[in-house]
Design a protein around this nucleic acid. Structure first.
Lengths: 201, 201
DNA sequence: GACATTAACGAACGATCGTTCTATAAATGC
DNA sequence: GCATTTATAGAACGATCGTTCGTTAATGTC
């Protein structure tokens, strides 16, 4: 990795954790230059525009999400076990990745949902991909015989995301120490409702 | 209402719908002055600081939420009927109130969850109050005999908020036309799981 | 209708924003 | 080790930010 790529990545690391606190829209080249001990212009040259930097942060977030949440979970066998692994990794990916200020992706989703442009498009693309991954994973859990054949994977994925979002908010804003426990409880209820009743009398 | 209060309210109306699009943090006095056809300084005088204006917007949001979502629902009898009314009003309160860019409160929650200060405190206060209202309403549904006595109102309210949040995101960012339907489906599943089985064979 | 009060304006402030340009320093390829 | 490309710094730009100040216009009161 050449020198250029190296500092670019260092900047991105800093931008990533900063965005976690102030949001992707709240990023400032001046502050970022200060934190990385670079000049504004030197830092700027790596991206060409602020928007390009913001896009890079969003892409970085998606990549880390895939690495930290999805990839390890896919080592679990298809079915509910894999789904549960996703939920568990998901719930503490803000600790795993360097996200002191909470989930960048969720924050960006709320921030750009009504501001057309490349940033919104990027967030949208990422969330659509995530939704599809979830739907597929649920569908495979049906195929594997863990969930009932009449399960609606879209509905299941929809509810999964809701559980994650409220957990995030409860933990960060309401300081609810039970947020993770409640999220897992909700997940279990979801699974139980759609589970194949293997041992009914 | 004197002239002062009158224009203050007009500014607040404009700020409210603007914040819906760009977020409470994205509000700008210059742009707001432009939209209301006032001078920056004239507008500024009504609030004394930008932060005070932002706080006023947050309080306005909470007040409208109580009026549009909660108050009408409380005309329903205690129990699941009232809960359902809350969910229905909640799901389209962004249409009812003047919120072209989505739920201000949720956006602010994501925006300020890691930025200590009066704004975060205000958002937090509002969401805690909402949570308490939901918990109480669920508890009353238990008392009324609609939900099983072992229902955990906190858990129920937790899941309700998740349903709302994912519905909001799905609708606004993913352009999912089925978001509301899925949210109601999730709500029904929630109710069914905790419902007293009145007519079991 | 004169007077006190309040609301609104216009100009300017210092700070910061993203961005551009030119020049120097460092890294790279031979 | 030299030449060339690449990375960084520094200064400056125009724009916008929130805020302050002094003045004028409008409102409310007796």
């Amino acid at each position: 990795m050449g020198k250029g790529e190296q500092t670019r990545q260092a900047i991105l690391d800093e931008a990533f954790s900063l965005a976690s606190c102030v949001g992707v829209g709240g990023l400032s080249i001046g502050i970022l230059a200060e934190r990385t001990k670079m000049s504004k212009s030197g830092l700027f040259a790596h991206f060409g525009s602020k928007e390009e930097l913001q896009l890079a942060v969003l892409r970085e977030a998606q990549q880390r999400f895939a690495e930290v949440v999805l990839r390890p979970a896919f080592r679990q066998p298809r079915g509910v076990a894999r789904l549960r692994a996703i939920v568990l990794n998901w719930l503490d990916w803000t600790r795993e990745a360097n996200l002191p200020g909470g989930c960048v992706i969720n924050a960006a989703a709320a921030e750009f949902d009504d501001q057309p442009g490349p940033l919104r498009d990027e967030v949208r693309r990422g969330l659509i991909a995530l939704r599809r991954t979830l739907v597929d994973t649920v569908a495979k859990a049906v195929e594997a015989g863990d969930l009932r054949p009449d399960t609606d994977p879209e509905q299941f994925a929809f509810e999964l995301e809701g559980i994650y979002q409220v957990a995030q908010q409860s933990r960060r804003l309401l300081n609810d120490p039970d947020a993770d426990r409640r999220a897992l409880f909700a997940f279990d209820r979801l699974v139980r409702d759609y589970a194949v009743e293997r041992d009914k009398e």
